[in-house]
Design a protein around this nucleic acid. Structure first.
Length: 270
DNA sequence: CGCGAGACCTGATAGC
DNA sequence: TGCTATCAGGTCTCGC
């Protein structure tokens, strides 16, 4: 569920909170989200390490350590990272607990377990990130790039925007939001998008993401930030899960496109 | 290769 | 109230 803005909010909070801290005791649960890495190995490589900086690539949170290893965390559909006191209760799906040298506790909870939790060397990290397309807020995500990747593709625009190899960090909410902002019908074959439409789409993706980051992301149901608080962007969504299009006042269509629940305005988005 | 469907999980909610 | 069915913001793999 967390997409780029939610991970970016987390990154910025962690940068403020734990940069320069040292990891003390670490506990990792045996789970497929470690992709075969042994919990003991992860613990050993984390314990005693200095947190040098916090990064992000697409939806992956990257905690860079003094050893040059990186702790990669992907929140999947239901992962939440909390900063808490050791006295706070342990949830049933806690996958990771890191005690910091100042006594605070950083924990990862992921009920559905679709997330990812790994320690990577610089080479492994590079390989992992090479699977991802450009950052939608970075210099490589241009209208020309979008046009090139869309060219000749019969799949719906929405399917390509959800593909992390095309662009890294968009998920269901922000794809719908961006397509609404750019007035594009999500089901349109991507190959039919012309240059000016690609330019508008590229621009709107940037605006939508930056606005969401400004409001600390969108958080439905159980998804929270580092402090277990909701993001503030939920009320400001233009189309996603809305009943009425704020632009034209017509009813929003809820349907299924690219295998995902999709909100769009049948009047605004042709 | 491109595309769509299904699988992987648990929990919240809707409907009976 | 309590049971069952359905759905969820993500990815991966498989078969056509």
């Amino acid at each position: 569920m967390p997409e780029l803005p939610e991970v970016e909010t987390l990154r910025a909070d962690l940068e403020r909170e734990i940069r320069g801290c040292r990891f003390a005791e670490v506990a990792v649960a045996q789970h497929r989200m470690t992709r075969g890495q042994e919990p003991q190995t992860i613990q050993r490589r984390l314990e005693g390490q200095l947190v040098e900086s916090i990064g992000r690539r697409g939806k992956c949170l990257l905690i860079h350590l003094g050893s040059r290893d990186t702790l990669l965390l992907h929140r999947g559909m239901s992962g939440n990272l909390y900063l808490q006191l050791p006295s706070d209760p342990i949830g049933p799906h806690q996958r990771l607990a890191i005690e910091l040298n100042d006594g605070r506790l950083l924990t990862l909870h992921d009920p559905r377990g679709f997330g990812e939790l790994q320690v990577l060397t610089p080479a492994e990290l590079e390989e992992r990130c090479a699977r991802l397309g450009p950052e939608p807020l970075g210099p490589d995500f241009t209208p020309e790039y979008v046009s090139r990747r869309f060219a000749g593709r019969a799949a719906p625009i929405k399917a390509l925007l959800l593909d992390q190899r095309i662009v890294a960090g968009l998920g269901n909410i922000y794809v719908d939001e961006s397509l609404w902002a750019a007035r594009l019908y999500p089901g349109r074959p991507a190959g039919g998008v012309n240059e000016s439409e690609a330019a508008l789409l590229t621009e709107q993706i940037g605006l939508v993401l930056n606005q969401a980051i400004m409001w600390r992301g969108t958080t439905f149901s159980a998804a929270r930030d580092l402090y277990r608080r909701d993001g503030n962007h939920g009320d400001r969504l233009g189309i996603f899960h809305r009943a009425i299009c704020p632009r034209c006042g017509n009813p929003v269509a809820q349907t299924r496109i690219a295998g995902r629940g999709t909100s769009y305005c049948p009047v605004c988005q042709r």
